Amino acid sequence: MLVGSLLAACMMLVGPSAPDGTSAKTVEAVRDIVPNRAMTWNICNPCDTGNAGRAAEIAAYAPQVVGLQEACVRDVEQIRQYLENLYGLVYRVEYGSVLRSWGRCGGAPWRPGGFGQAILSAAPMTDRVLVEYPDGGSEDRGYMAVTTEVGGRPVRVYNTHLAERRQEDVRARQIGVLSAEVGRNDRAIVLGDFNAVPYAPELTRMWTVAADADPQCRPAASGVCETTTDWQSKFDYVFLRGIAPLGHRVPPTPYSDHDPLYTDLKTT
């Protein structure tokens, strides 16, 4: 009985261990999800990091909606389990897998894991669409969209990952497809890794239909834009259409080569 009591006390002090062997630090009390907060994060794949750490990063900011890029279905499912079991944060999920990749996501060779985007939302999601870009560049790419609730109001949320660097012409065509769809909405949030700095010419059409969540970040080299990657470039965006930002952060993380970017929104 004494040994059992000591073990229980130790668990309360250090927190549970995640099933993948990663030490997972729990929050002292269950946090409430922030209802008007949106977050985008390229979680990096392949990267040598555990899903418990990724979940801890999301739980630290508890956004209402999260867009993940370079996401394997198996990883996202595990992240959701950690968020609920370790932090009491319950999210629904919709996937935007654009390819099946055994090398990236594992699984049986004849049934590789899905790879692409995912959206986590605390509120129900409807009207999911997945669109693959006609030209993905060096790897299949696309965007997904759902309708969900942010800040107590319905909004169309997009999540995308554009073609890799040095493929400017491909990204320009992809943005043409995405911006045309975003422009049909009165209110929209666009999350994603655009693989382009704000003043890149291929982003021009995106800037015509939405604004960056950072009011100081604009499509000019003189704009003051926080970097979001380990190589000190801004590639990650929360674009807003018909919604005003209240504030944003780009907290550093050891769990990816991209930092998470989140913004609080004025939706009323």
Rank of each mutant, 00 (worst) to 15 (best):
Y82S: 09
Y95S: 08
G53V: 04
N85G: 00
N85A: 13
R74M: 05
V73R: 03
R80L: 02
A52W: 12
T26Y: 07
P63Y: 04
E57F: 09
T22C: 06
A60H: 00
R80D: 06
G67C: 01
N51Y: 12
R80V: 00
Y91H: 06
E77M: 04
A38N: 00
P63E: 10
W41T: 07
Q64E: 13
I58Q: 05
D48W: 03
V30R: 15
D75K: 02
E28T: 13
K25P: 07
A56L: 09
S97W: 09
M39F: 00
G50H: 00
D32M: 11
P46E: 12
S97H: 07
T26M: 05
A59Q: 08
P63I: 09
M39K: 00
L86H: 14
P35M: 06
S23V: 11
R37D: 08
E84D: 12
A59G: 03
L68C: 01
S23P: 02
R74E: 14
A60V: 05
A59K: 10
A29Q: 15
Q78Y: 15
K25C: 00
E70W: 02
A60D: 12
V34R: 15
V34L: 08
A38H: 05
Q69G: 02
R54D: 01
V34G: 02
L68E: 07
E77H: 07
R74P: 07
V76L: 00
Y95V: 02
T40Q: 06
N36K: 09
C47T: 03
V76S: 11
A55N: 08
S23Q: 11
A60E: 12
P35E: 07
T26I: 05
E70C: 04
T40Y: 11
N36Q: 12
Y82T: 13
P35K: 10
G21D: 08
V30A: 13
C72D: 11
G96D: 07
D75V: 09
V27T: 15
A24S: 14
N51A: 00
G50T: 08
N36V: 03
C47D: 10
M39I: 06
E94V: 14
V34M: 02
I43G: 08
R31S: 14
V27Y: 03
N45D: 14
A59P: 10
N42Q: 11
N36I: 00
S23F: 10
G21F: 08
A71I: 05
E28G: 08
Y82E: 14
V90G: 10
I43R: 04
Y82Q: 12
A52E: 15
T22K: 03
A55V: 03
P46C: 08
A56E: 15
Q81E: 12
Y82F: 14
A52C: 10
L89A: 09
I79M: 09
A56P: 06
N36F: 07
D32C: 04
P63R: 01
Y61M: 00
R92N: 15
V76K: 06
C47H: 01
A71E: 03
V65A: 13
V65E: 13
Q69A: 11
T26S: 10
D32H: 14
G88N: 04
Y61P: 04
Y82P: 06
Q78P: 02
G21P: 07
S23H: 08
Q78T: 13
A56Q: 12
G50I: 10
V30I: 14
A29M: 05
A56K: 03
E28V: 11
Y87F: 13
V66P: 01
Q69K: 08
Y95W: 10
